[in-house]
Write a protein that binds this DNA or RNA. Sequence first.
DNA 1: TTGTACGCGTTATCAT
DNA 2: ATGATAACGCGTACAA
Lengths: 333, 333
Amino acid sequence: MATISDIARQANVSRTLVSRVLNNKPGVSPENRKKILEIIEENSYVPNGLAKSLVLQRTNTIGVVMDDLCNDFFFRLINGLQDAAEAQDYNILFCSGRKDMATRLKYVDYLTGGCVDGIIAYGSRFDDEELFRYVAEKSANSVLIESDLSGCDIDKILLDNFHGAYTATEHLIRQGRKNIIHVTCDMNYDVGLERLNGFVQAMHDYRMPLGPDSILYADHFENTAYQQMQKRLSQSTHPDACFAGADKPAYGVLRAAMEAGLSVPGDLAVIGFDDDVSDSKDILFPPLSTMRQPLYEMGQAGVALLIDKISHPGRDPITQTFEAELVLRETCR
Amino acid sequence: MATISDIARQANVSRTLVSRVLNNKPGVSPENRKKILEIIEENSYVPNGLAKSLVLQRTNTIGVVMDDLCNDFFFRLINGLQDAAEAQDYNILFCSGRKDMATRLKYVDYLTGGCVDGIIAYGSRFDDEELFRYVAEKSANSVLIESDLSGCDIDKILLDNFHGAYTATEHLIRQGRKNIIHVTCDMNYDVGLERLNGFVQAMHDYRMPLGPDSILYADHFENTAYQQMQKRLSQSTHPDACFAGADKPAYGVLRAAMEAGLSVPGDLAVIGFDDDVSDSKDILFPPLSTMRQPLYEMGQAGVALLIDKISHPGRDPITQTFEAELVLRETCR
DNA sequence: TTGTACGCGTTATCAT
DNA sequence: ATGATAACGCGTACAA
C-alpha cells in the first residue's frame, strides 16, 4: 500500500503538495499537480481514511445498527436512510446485531470507536433496550428510530402507534361495524403493545363491546394470525371487522376469512398496519387497507437529526413523532 | 471524548500502563490496574479504533458490498457471512451500493481507504461488472461471490448454475415428462443466462423438443412469470413440466397452473431454483421442489477465503464452486 | 509556490 | 513495574 510519502518521494515534492492535490486545494504549480496526479494514478494510490479521519476528527460516515438487515420490511427505511445520508455526502454503514447481546454491544463499541460520526439504532424489541441504552450512553451523536427509550438524553424518531391504532379502529366503528376484533402483531415489540392499547382505547371511548374474544394474539407471520382467525371463525358469532397490528397478520386473517366463505369487506372489513409492500399479494387478495407507516420519511428524518446533532454538539435532544396514515383500499371502504 | 492520555493523567500513570490494561496485558501492578479500570469506567472511555488500526495496520473488520440489502433472499447469505466472520472475531460491515455507479465506487474507495482488512462483493448483475473490476483492482484482499469475473486475479465463490439447471431439467426428463418448458429469472443477471444454458443443454443432450414456446422470459417477480404462464396456457398444447430459473417465477407458474385447473404435479411438474424461503407460501401452494443454492455455506466460504487471503498476502487466487442440490418436494416427485 | 514540523490517539520498543 | 519515545498516514499552521 502506497502512502502519501511514497507519492511525494516519487514526485520529488513534499507531502504537503500531494495532500493539496488530493484535496483539490490551490497552491500547487500546474506542472507539479500534473506530475503528482500521474504518480497517484500509476500507484493506484488511495489515501488512508483512518489517518485522515484521525487528524480531521471527522469521518463523514454514519453507522446504522439494527437487529436484522435482510427483511423486505426495511426496504423503505434503508432507502430513506441512504438517500438522506448520501445527499449530504455521508457514507452509511450497516451492522446487523442479531444473536446475543454481547455481539451487539461489540458493534456499538466498534462504531463508537471513532469510525463513524454518529449512530442510528433501529428497533423496538423489549430485549433491545439494553442495546439502546448502551448506544445512548456511549455515543453523544446518536438517534433511536422506533424506540421510545425513557430517561435518556437522545434524539428519537417515533411513530405514534397508539394514535394510528386508534384511527384504524375508529374508522371501523364509524363505518358501523358492530363486532370488531384486533389481531396483534408480535408482542415482543413495543409497537405491539402500543397498537393494542390504541385499539382498546378507541373501543372503550366509543362504548364498543370488548370481550376475551375481541383480541387474538399473533405475531408478524401470516400463519399464526391465519390459525388464530380460523379458530375464531369456528365460534358461533363472527366478527364483522378486524384491525390487525401489522400487514402480515392481516393477510392471515384475510385468508382465513376467504376460506371460510366470508366476503371482504362485506362480511368482514380488514385494516392492517405498516403498509408492508414486501409481498405481491395483490392477485390473491383484495388490496389491503392499512395504516401506512412512513418509514422512508422516518429514515430521512433520522439522518437529518443525526447530522444536525453532529454539527451542533451539545444541543438538547429532539423527539420527532410521525403519524401513520389511513390508506383505504379494497378490504375496507 | 476522553483519550488514553486523559485516562493516564487522571490515574497519574503513563499511557503505556493504560494501554496494557486496555489490552489485558501483564506488567501492571494490581493497584494501578484497579485504579485505571475505575477511571476508564467513570469516563465511559472507549479507545479510538482509528488510531489503533493505524498503528496495528489491521482493523479486524470485513466490508461487504452488495447492491441491495433488504431482500429476504439474502437472509442465508448474510447469516453465513456474519457467523463466519464473528467466529473469527472479525466485525462485518454492510454497504448497499444501489443507485448509480459513482456511489458504488465511492463505497469501494471508502472501504479500501483502510477501514477494513478486506472486501466481499456480492452479485452477478451485468452492469455490476465495472464495480467488481474496481474492487479487484483497488483492493488486494477481496473476494467475489456469485460473479465469475474473468481476467482478474481475485478469489471467487461461485455456484454452478449451469449444472444445477441441467440437473433439474434432467430430472424432469427422466421422470418421463415430454413437454418441458423453462421460465427464466431476471436475464440482467449472469445466473439467468447460465441457468437457461443448462436447461437448453440438457434438453439437447436428451433430444427433447425445444421450440420457441419452450422458453418463457420472466424475472424475479411472481407476477411476470404468472402472466407469461397464463399466456402460455392459453395455447392449445400444454407443457407437462416446468423448470423455473428462480423460486419466485416458479410460484407464478404454479399460480397460473392452479388457476387453469391443472393438477400439480400430475398435469404439471415444477422445479424452481434457489430455495428462497422468504415467503410462507406453504399454505397456498404445494411445497416447491427446487435447486437449493447453499447461500449460507457460500457466505461462510467467502469469509474463510478472505481471512485466508489476509493472513497469506500474495497467495494465488482461489475459485471455489458450489453445487446446487435438488430438493424434491410436492411439486415434483 | 514550496517545505518543515507538529498533532490526531494508539501500540510497541526500549529504557529505567 | 513503569515510562519516554517512535511510529502508523495524514492535514495544516507556519515559515521560507
